[in-house]
Simulated scan of single mutants.
Amino acid sequence: MKKIFILLASAFFYTAASAQTTWTVDKAHSNVKFTATHLMVSDVDGIFKNYDATITSSKPDFSDAKFQISIQTASVTTDNDQRDKHISSPDFFEVAKYPTLTFTSTGITKTSDKHYKLAGNLTLHGVTKPVTFDLWYRGTIVNPMSKADDAGFQLTGTINRSDFAFGPSIPNAVVSDEIAIKANGEFGKAK
C-alpha cells in the first residue's frame, strides 16, 4: 500500500510540475516588423498589422517554450500605398495565393541569462525552411490592470528572401536578399 501511495504521489507531482501553460499575445503591446535595404543605401521598414501568436511552456524561465506565430500577409504595410500594393503582388508576398506566413518553433536553447536561440520552421511564400532567431526573454510581471501574469519577449534575426523564392525577379541591388526580422511580444497567461 505504501508503494502505491508513493507512486500515486510521484505521478501527481510529476503531472503538476510538467503542466503546460498557454500564453497568448497582447496585440496592443506587440508588433512584428521587418527591414529590407533599398538600392543598397536606404532601409525600408514594414510591419504586419494582423497576426496571432501563442506560447506553451511548463517552466517559469520559458526554457522549454514552444512558439506558434501566424501572420496575415495582406496586413503588411510600409506606410506607402504604392509600395504596399507592389509587395502584396505576385512579385513578393502574392497575398491572394499565400495569405499566411507561419513560424512554428522546433527547439529552444538557452545561451545566457534570459537569452535563447529559437529554432523553428518558417513558411513564407509557400516554402518552408528551418530558421533560427535570437530570443530575449524580458521577464514576467503581474499586470497592474488585469492582475494576471504578463511575459515579454523580443525576437530578432535575419532571413534570406531567396531561400523562400520571395521576390525572385527583383535583383539584390534593388531589394536586399537579407531581410531583418524584429518582433516584440507581450503575452498574457491564459486563464
Rank of each mutant, 00 (worst) to 15 (best):
Thr22Trp: 12
Met1Lys: 13
Ala180Glu: 08
Ala96Arg: 04
Ser70Asp: 14
Asn143Leu: 05
Thr37Lys: 07
Ser162Ile: 02
Ser75Phe: 09
Pro130Leu: 13
Thr132Val: 15
Lys182His: 10
Ala28Tyr: 06
Met40Arg: 11
Thr77Leu: 09
Ile87Gln: 01
Ala148Pro: 06
Asn184Asp: 13
Thr54Cys: 10
Pro90Ile: 15
Asp79Val: 07
Pro130Gly: 04
Ala183Ser: 09
Lys182Glu: 14
Thr54His: 08
Lys114Phe: 06
Arg138Asn: 14
Asp163Cys: 04
Ser75Leu: 10
Ala16Ser: 11
Pro144Tyr: 11
Val41Tyr: 15
Ser162Thr: 03
Thr156Leu: 06
Asp45His: 14
Pro144Trp: 12
Arg161Ser: 01
Ala183Trp: 02
Lys114Val: 03
Gly167Met: 00
Gly107Lys: 12
Ser176Gly: 03
Ala65Pro: 04
Phe103Thr: 01
Asn184Pro: 10
Tyr137Leu: 10
Thr22Gly: 02
Ala17Phe: 11
Ala151Phe: 15
Ala180Arg: 13
Gln20Asn: 11
Pro168Trp: 00
Glu94Gly: 01
Tyr14Pro: 01
Pro144Thr: 09
Lys33Thr: 10
Ile47Gly: 04
Ile71Cys: 05
Lys66Ala: 12
Ile179Leu: 06
Leu118Tyr: 07
Met145Leu: 15
Glu94Phe: 02
Ile181Ala: 00
Pro171Leu: 11
Asn80Ile: 10
Pro90His: 05
Thr140Asn: 08
Lys114Asn: 13
Asp177Tyr: 03
Thr35Gly: 05
Asn50Ile: 12
Lys97Ala: 04
Ala17Gly: 09
Ala148Ser: 12
Met1Asn: 13
Pro168Leu: 07
Arg138Trp: 10
Asn80Phe: 05
Thr56Ile: 15
Ala36Arg: 01
His115Cys: 11
Tyr98Val: 00
Met145Gln: 14
Pro60Tyr: 08
Asn172Gln: 11
Met40Tyr: 15
